[in-house]
């Protein structure tokens, strides 16, 4: 119980993490704030590894705290069920992102982008890493400017 109480503020914090849904706006925002874009393709209601990745990495305090300072997060979701259906506009935006970065339809696919929108580094499937290790990999990739 005490553990749960300890986690409570973290859970509230986590809900404050914002996933952008418009890539162009996110790239602009990133360059203004000197951050890096991390783009994630997911199937939030059918893709088991996507759900696991969100739970174990993206919603982990280690990732949340670091990403808030350094990343602009973008999510392109491809939900399947009727109740999660996106607006036509959002669906079109997501498909445009997939057309550019995920033509082979890999879920989850996570990509770290350069300021010009090209891929700096990508992860196919759920990385078998802890949140802290994943953060470390991103950090290394950002610091090594090409």
């Amino acid at each position: 119980m005490s553990k749960l109480l300890f986690l409570l503020p973290l859970l509230m914090w986590q809900s404050q993490v914002k996933w952008e849904t418009d890539l162009d706006a996110a790239i602009k925002m990133a360059s203004e704030k000197n951050k890096t874009v991390l783009l994630n393709f997911s199937g939030s209601d059918w893709c088991a590894p996507c759900i696991q990745m969100k739970k174990n990495i993206f919603n982990h305090p280690d990732f949340i705290s670091w990403s808030a300072e350094n990343l602009v997060l973008v999510n392109a979701d491809f939900p399947r069920s009727k109740k999660n259906k996106l607006t036509a506009e959002q669906q079109m935006r997501n498909e445009r992102m997939a057309e550019q970065y995920n033509r082979t339809g890999i879920f989850p696919l996570t990509a770290l982008l350069n300021p010009d929108g090209s891929i700096r580094k990508s992860w196919e499937g759920m990385p078998k890493l802890s949140a802290a290790e994943f953060v470390e990999e991103i950090r290394k990739n950002i610091s090594h400017q090409p």
Partner: peptide, 8 residues
């Protein structure tokens, strides 16, 4: 059907 539209 595109590859990323194959969730069904």
């Amino acid at each position: 059907v595109k590859e990323y539209q194959k969730n069904k």
